[in-house]
Design a protein around this nucleic acid. Structure first.
Length: 568
RNA sequence: GGAUCCGUAGCCUAGUCUGGAUAGGGCACUGGCCUUCUAACCUGCAACAAGCAAGAAGGAAGCCGGGGAUCGCGGGUUCGAAUCCCGUCGGAUCCA
């Protein structure tokens, strides 16, 4: 909770029983605040002292004298429970928040990190999987930055290969040179779908696509021009989606620019004996000793595989940013083995940056009907999804406010709809597979983004209505109801919560914290009146508490990439 | 066949790394909190007074209550296991 209080207790514990068994982690928070603010379970001393934990708790409770900070100590069964001076606790926590403002909970890490996401293919628009990828990428980036790190956002554009040639071929054959009449990446995707349809009727198209790829690799001008034109459409469309999701990149990589460069690293590795040639002439890495199988790193004909390119890409990254401490790839869990192999190969090649890579994996997003399959047309498009959420939010806003201008109403809908989507995706542990159920995701009640936003707006409303400034010279002893103390404790825990979330790359931890904080706030709000003309001192104290809750909600939402509106 | 991840109420989910007090939320279900209308004859509570009790409709980005869990299963370690270890079953993903 608050370190000062913790250390105080631990120091005194060490005085009593010695430092052998006591460290920072022995204190717990009791399940019910009525039991105490901190607890020391006496089991661990049982063996050494040859006494029952109950007897130890009783003995320690008898020896402990209340002081200015710990006002009471009680033994309950095998636990020794400590009661803090509540007004000292509130004073310390709320003053800290109000002084530090948006920096409350910021960490002091100072590493330089790179985050890579979402790595789109330029032959079709972004889909639901990319949505999860981007939301996790943005949120984890925010988390790491909030911990004090410098974070470089990068993106690898998979802009070459057979799949790109397929949409190119379809456009070439049936496109009649037309310009996009829709969002340009959707336009490109349309030709990819068209290719699949036509290829079913005419298998020769597959051969023609291969031919087109050869021409592309040979640098055929007409093919390159078409490729540039269609990729430009794709990028233009992606850019629109990125900006709606608040995604921006400091550095973009393009597969087409480095896919050939990997070859030399492979040949170096072959020379050094890290790789071998197999019977077919492929160059392979034998990762059997590490339980990772055998992996082809360069085909017999000298063409590259994904692994070749990825080795090359890692080189580029660490060349561009030599002082990088960590490079994080945000990629779905299905690539797990690939990254394990990649990192092991980097290690075998003895690259200095071998251990500075991390695969931040996340689970699949399935639909209630099962897996998304582009061939069966069950892919949920990212742009459609966003629009659907915003439209629903718009309807909800219109329902509540008839007198808003269209502009204001749409702006609110954007903020609320995006919050609903972001929160729905981010509140689940990234590692978990999740089912995207449109019906559940569009709800604005329960554990949702709008629920959290509403608390923020509500507090802004209370402040406004009170017509009073936030004062810090309040009487903290007035905050004594269970609801108020629960809020103070939750606020106190924010720094450790957000540090933990960053450490584990888990935005979901922040989402759950916010839900908890908001539930507690609403309970407080319904049970205790904040603005009370008759009791100005209490009003000031509660207003300060509200403002601190608001501040932390704003920070927390910000970390998740969600706006905190003052009205909604 | 091998590897990785997952298994917690009807459904979704936190907690698992770092073992401790009744396994925390949400959805759905259910009872209430609010507003309006009807009735205002009788009866009851209250009685200084406002009122409450019935029925119907509606509303809520909010609150309170209720039911609902062999923490997949079996074993082990431990004073203590959702958490650690072993085995097993089921699901997802990747590799072959």
């Amino acid at each position: 909770m608050v370190d000062d209080f913790r250390f105080h207790i631990i120091e005194k514990l060490i005085d009593e029983v010695g430092s052998d068994d006591i460290d920072d982690s022995v204190l717990e928070v009791p399940p019910d605040p009525a039991l105490g603010d901190y607890a020391f379970p006496c089991f661990i001393l049982s063996k050494k002292l040859k006494k029952s934990p109950q007897a130890i708790a009783e003995w320690l409770a008898g020896k402990w004298k209340p002081d200015a900070v710990i006002v009471d100590v009680k033994n309950v069964g095998p636990y020794l429970n400590f009661f803090l001076d509540k007004s000292k606790l509130s004073g310390q926590v709320l003053t800290k928040i109000i002084n530090e403002r948006a920096d409350y909970g910021k960490g002091s890490d100072s590493r330089k990190m790179m985050l890579e996401f979402p790595g789109p293919n330029t032959n079709k628009p972004l889909h639901l999987g990319h949505v999860r990828n981007m939301l996790i990428g943005v949120a984890v980036g925010n988390l790491l930055r909030f911990q004090g790190n410098q974070v470089i956002n990068t993106n690898i554009n998979n802009d070459r290969g057979i799949h790109i040639c397929k949409s190119m071929l379809a456009y070439k054959l049936f496109g009649d040179g037309q310009e996009p009449d829709m969002k340009p990446d959707h336009f490109v995707g349309k030709w990819y779908v068209r290719f699949a349809e036509e290829a079913k009727k005419n298998p020769d198209l597959e051969v023609q696509a291969q031919e087109l790829l050869r021409k592309w690799e040979a640098g055929d001008k007409e093919t390159i021009d078409l490729w540039k034109k269609m990729n430009a459409w794709a990028f233009k469309g992606f850019q629109q989606t990125y900006s709606r999701f608040g995604v921006r990149f400091d550095k973009e990589y393009f597969e087409s620019q480095h896919y050939k460069k990997g070859k030399k690293y492979i040949l170096e590795g072959l020379k050094a004996g890290v790789f071998q040639k197999d019977d077919d002439g492929n160059i392979v890495a034998d990762l059997e000793p590490f339980g990772l199988g055998k992996k082809v790193v360069l085909r017999a004909d000298g063409t590259s595989v994904y692994m070749t390119q990825d080795i090359s890409l890692v080189h580029e990254k660490f060349n561009d940013f030599p002082d990088l401490d960590l490079s994080i790839n945000v990629v779905a869990t299905e690539q797990n083995l690939h990254f394990q192999q990649l990192f092991k190969i980097l290690e075998l090649l003895r690259y200095p940056f071998a251990k500075k890579n991390y695969h931040l994996r996340y689970g699949m997003v399935n639909l209630p009907e099962g897996k998304m399959k582009s061939r069966e047309g069950t892919v949920v498009d990212a742009d459609d999804l966003v629009q659907e959420m915003v439209d629903l939010a718009h309807a909800a806003v219109e329902l509540r406010h008839k007198d808003l201008s269209d502009e204001e109403s749409l702006a609110r809908a954007e903020v609320i709809g995006m919050a609903a989507l972001r929160f729905f995706i981010l509140k689940t542990d990234p590692l978990r597979d999740m089912t995207y159920d449109p019906k559940a995701s569009i709800s604005f009640e329960g554990e949702t983004g709008p629920y959290v936003q509403y608390v923020h707006a509500r507090i802004c409303g209370i402040k406004e209505k009170s017509g009073r400034p936030i004062r810090t010279d309040i009487d903290f002893s007035l905050l004594k109801t269970p609801e108020e103390l629960a809020l103070v404790k939750l606020l106190a825990s924010w720094p450790s919560v957000v540090a933990d979330a960053a450490h584990k790359y888990k935005p979901s931890t922040v989402a759950h914290y916010l839900i908890d904080l908001c539930q507690n706030f609403n309970e407080f709000y319904h049970r205790r009146r904040v603005v009370d003309e008759e009791r100005p001192a209490l009003t000031d104290a509660r207003l300060l508490l509200c403002e601190c809750v608001r501040q932390v909600v704003e920070i927390g939402l910000g970390v998740l990439g969600i706006d905190a509106p003052e009205e909604m």
